[in-house]
Computed example of a mutant assay.
Amino acid sequence: MRILENFVILLKAQRGLEESDSYEKLLNSHGYVVKQVNTLVFEFHDLSELKEKLESSKKYSGLLLSSPRCVEAVYFALNKNKLESSWHGKHNYAVGEATHLVALKKLGINCRGKESGNAKNLSSIVAKENIGTDKPFLFPHGNLKTDTLKIELSKSNISIEGVLVYDTLSNPNIEEEFADVTEKFTLFPEYIIFFSPSGVRSSVEILRKSPGCLNKMKCIAIGPVTETSMKEENFNIYGVAASPNPEEVLNIIKR
């Protein structure tokens, strides 16, 4: 087993159709070799129900898109076509810049709320801009969604109509992906970045098959919840990024 300097592995969820990785882009620009192992994958389903709802735009105030995966579900439900023009004049919302950009490119809609960053902040924007609306918002979502949007918007008498369109699953091929990026567990990264507790749980036993690698790699957590999971597994934590911010991760690596 050998540790390769300036080699970074990102342990995070599978990328979507149009997602570039801001961490990889920034670290590459500073001379680091970056590879990703998918901890979670996404399985779409029930898109016929979503398609029917999308064809009934008159029933809705607009769309709520909480992640790039939600945008992709709409795109696949429409057989990889853009939304019909009747949706364009509605109040459509996206959580975050990445979701906004995918919706613009794949669906042809310029969503509001890209600066929100999370569901609670988005609900405040939606509530302010839709006082008195009597039509629900269409909300395609995954199996791990929270009730934040529903609860917060109900305080302003705004309803949402959810439809489950994808499941988030542990990557069944994670060990094979690890083997691929580490040259069959012989070449390990100087830095390994964990983005979620699921990433910790799904990889810890794989890493323990290579004695000593966890002690030699510099393990970085994204957020305090991930940090807690790493501590529970007795990881030696090199640093913790308080928020999912590529610049903050770079600062930890370069210190």
Score class of each variant (00 low, 15 high):
L153C: 10
S210A: 15
V163C: 13
S170N: 13
P197V: 14
Y23M: 01
S196V: 10
E18T: 15
N143V: 06
E176M: 09
L169H: 13
M1I: 03
G162T: 12
I220H: 03
W87H: 07
E176N: 11
Y93S: 08
G117F: 12
K231M: 08
K53E: 08
R255D: 14
K218W: 05
H141S: 08
D21Y: 15
L250H: 04
F7I: 02
T99V: 14
G62M: 10
L214K: 01
G162L: 11
R2N: 11
T146M: 10
E232D: 12
F194T: 02
R201T: 04
Y93L: 06
E19K: 10
H30S: 04
T226C: 12
L138K: 13
N251K: 14
Y93T: 10
K105A: 12
L169S: 06
A127F: 09
R201K: 06
G162D: 14
Y93N: 10
T146A: 04
L107E: 12
S56W: 08
G108D: 07
G16I: 13
L4F: 06
Y32T: 00
L122R: 11
H30N: 06
C219K: 00
I220G: 05
S85F: 09
N215T: 05
K128Y: 04
S198Y: 03
G132Y: 07
K216S: 06
P68A: 04
L50S: 12
L207A: 05
A94H: 14
L47G: 06
L83W: 11
K155F: 01
L64P: 05
R201G: 00
S20I: 10
A241R: 08
P211M: 06
S86W: 10
A241F: 10
Y238E: 03
E152K: 07
L54D: 14
Y166D: 10
I125L: 15
K80A: 03
N38E: 15
A119V: 06
F137M: 04
S124N: 13
E177M: 05
I158G: 00
Y238P: 00
K35R: 12
V165T: 11
F194G: 00
S210P: 04
S196I: 09
G132M: 02
S124W: 03
Q36M: 11
I131N: 07
F137T: 08
S66A: 15
L144N: 14
K82F: 07
L4D: 04
L250G: 07
E43R: 15
A119H: 05
K218D: 01
K25I: 15
I109N: 07
K184E: 04
K145L: 07
K51L: 12
K59G: 02
R208W: 04
G199C: 05
E52N: 15
V163R: 02
E205R: 08
E24L: 00
V249N: 04
Y60A: 02
N236M: 05
N130K: 00
E232T: 07
R69K: 15
L17R: 07
S86D: 13
K82N: 06
A77E: 14
T226P: 01
I253F: 11
N28L: 05
L10Y: 09
V204T: 12
N28F: 09
E18D: 15
